[in-house]
Design a protein around this nucleic acid. Sequence first.
DNA 1: TTTCATCATACCTTAAAAGTATGGAATGAT
DNA 2: ATCATTCCATACTTTTAAGGTATGATGAAA
Lengths: 308, 308
Amino acid sequence: MIELRHLHAVIAIAEERNLTRAAERLGIQQPPLTRLLKGMEQELGVQLFERHARGMRLTPAGRSMLKGAYDVIERMDETVEDVRRIVRGEAGELSIGFTNSALCHPSLPDMLGQFRETWPDVGLTLTEGNSSQLLGALREDTVDVAFVRTSIPYVSDVVVELIVEEPMVVAVPRTHRLAKEAPAGGLKLAELEDEDFILYQSQYNNGLYKTIVDACLGAGFTPRIRQKGPQLLAALNLVAGGLGISLVPQSMQQHHAGQVVYIPLSSRTALTAPLYLVFRSVRMTGAKLYFIHQARRIRQAYGAVAAE
Amino acid sequence: MIELRHLHAVIAIAEERNLTRAAERLGIQQPPLTRLLKGMEQELGVQLFERHARGMRLTPAGRSMLKGAYDVIERMDETVEDVRRIVRGEAGELSIGFTNSALCHPSLPDMLGQFRETWPDVGLTLTEGNSSQLLGALREDTVDVAFVRTSIPYVSDVVVELIVEEPMVVAVPRTHRLAKEAPAGGLKLAELEDEDFILYQSQYNNGLYKTIVDACLGAGFTPRIRQKGPQLLAALNLVAGGLGISLVPQSMQQHHAGQVVYIPLSSRTALTAPLYLVFRSVRMTGAKLYFIHQARRIRQAYGAVAAE
DNA sequence: TTTCATCATACCTTAAAAGTATGGAATGAT
DNA sequence: ATCATTCCATACTTTTAAGGTATGATGAAA
C-alpha cells in the first residue's frame, strides 16, 4: 500500500535529485530511502526515477506520481488544518438555543454581535424551543449551548451556568389601578394578594413558576392563579388583554410597552429571575469555549445592571 | 503524523458507527483501532467521535475530518491509478522522432492513425531531426522512439529494430535520357557509371551514403559525386533542378513527381534502404511498448510490399 | 587510473503497530 | 432489581516493518 511516507519520499527525491540529500531532508538515512522507493516502484510496476551516476531523474510515470503526491499531501494538510481550525474555534458551526423568554434579554444581541465579530468564520445557528426541547437538543448535539430561564434537572456532563440574575417586575394592564399610582420604593408582594395572577409553566419547567408562588407564600398569601400559559410571552399577552397581572423578568419591559405597565418590586422583595447558559462539558471546540467565556464576561457587565 | 491508515480508520468507524465492526472491516482487531483513533485525537487535540454504549458518533470536528479523509483517499487512489494508466499505456505522452526521410514512408500515417485510435488518451508528439539529434533526444528522453534510415552507433540500452527494408530507385530529372527509356527488368547500377550523383550525408550519418557508394563499387565503378546535401529531400530538390541523379528509397517516389522520374533498379541489384525504429530499452511504459509492437506488425505488412 | 559521488545490498536494531486477554460502563431483558 | 450482553478501554505480549550501520558496485570526473 502506498503511504504518505512514500509521497514525501517522491517529492524529496524529485526536488533534491539525489537520494542522499533527499534522505537527509526526510530525516532518515539513504539506504531506507532506497528501499522505500524500490518498494513503491515494485508495487506500481514502474520505475519512477532513473538512476544515474549523478543522481536521480524522474521518469514520465514518476512525474505523474510527483504531481499526485503534491496534491494528496496538500489535501492532507488542508484536512488537518481544517480540523484544527474547528478546534481553535476559527471555523465551524455553533448552534445556540433559546427559550423565548431568554431571547428577550438585552444582553443577547450584544453577545451574538460580539461573537460574530471575533469569529467571522464560525456559522451561528439560532434555535428556539422550550427548556425540555433545548435539553434534548443539547444531548443530541443539535445545539451546542442554550439559554434558559430555569435551572435544568441534573444530567451528567450538562453544565448550567448562571449568566444574569435580574429583578422581576410586576406586569399590570394599562388600565389597572396599580398602573396609575406606582409606589415609590417599589411595590410590596403583599399588595398583590387580591390580584388575579397569570403565570407560565411548561410541562417540565417549573422554574419561575415555583419561584413566584414560593415568594407569594413567603409574603403571606397564596396567589390566585387565574390562568396558566405555556410561555412567558403568552402570559404577557393575557396581561395586555386585561385578564390579570403577572411577574416577569425586568428585561421583558420592552414588550407590550403600550398596554402593559411594569412596576418594580420593593428592593426587599429580592424576587429575581435567572438566565442560565447550559451546555455539555464534552465537545469543547474553540468556538463553543469562547462563547461560554464571553457569556461569563457578559455576566459581569450585566451583573451591575441587575443589581440596580 | 496523521497517516492514510488513520483516514481509513475514520471512514470505517464513521460508516460502521461501531469500533468492532470497523476493525473487522479494516482487517485488524478492535483494540488497535481504539488506539489508532485515540492517537489521532491526541495529535489533533479533539475528540473525533463520542463514545456511547451503543457505538461511536461523529463530533463536528470528526465530520470535518471524515470529509477530508474521503477527499485525500480519493486523490490518493486517483494518483495511483493515473500512474498505472501510464504504465499500461492508457494515458500519458509518447514522443516520436523522425528523420525527414523516414517521414516520407507510407507506413507512418498508418501507424500513427492506428495508435491514436487504440490509445486515444495518449498524447503523441512528433519531432523532426537528423539521426544524431534524434539519438541525443532519445538519451535525454525528449523522444521515446525514433524512426531513422541509418543504423545508429551502438549505445548501451538503445535498441535498433529494422521495420522496413525497401528497394531503392534511381531518381533522374524529367529531362534525363533515362527518363524516357525505362528499361524493362530494371536498371542496372553499372549503367549509371557516367552520371553525376547527388548524395546526402549528415555529419554523423553515413548510412545510405555508404550503402550507395559500396553498391557502385560493387558494380565496378566509383560514383562521380557532384554534390552532397545534408538531407535526402534536399538531394531530390537538386535532382529536380537537373543537377544530377540520385538513389533514393522507393517510398520517396511521391516527391517532385513532376520534375523527377523514378526508375526501378534491376532485381539483382538488391540495393535497399532500411527504416529503423530506435528506442531505449528502459522506461518501457505501455504506450511505448505498444507502439513498438505495432511497428513490428507494420514490418510484416509492409515486408511484402518491400519484397515486390 | 584513481578518486569521488552516488545508489544498492546485506545484516542488525529499534520502534511501532497488531494481537490477546481482560476489565468496566451502559443498555436491555427477565 | 439483577443479570446478561454489547461495546469500548487498558495492560501486556508478539510480530512486523521501518530505520540504522557497514560496505559494495558503478559510473563520472580529475
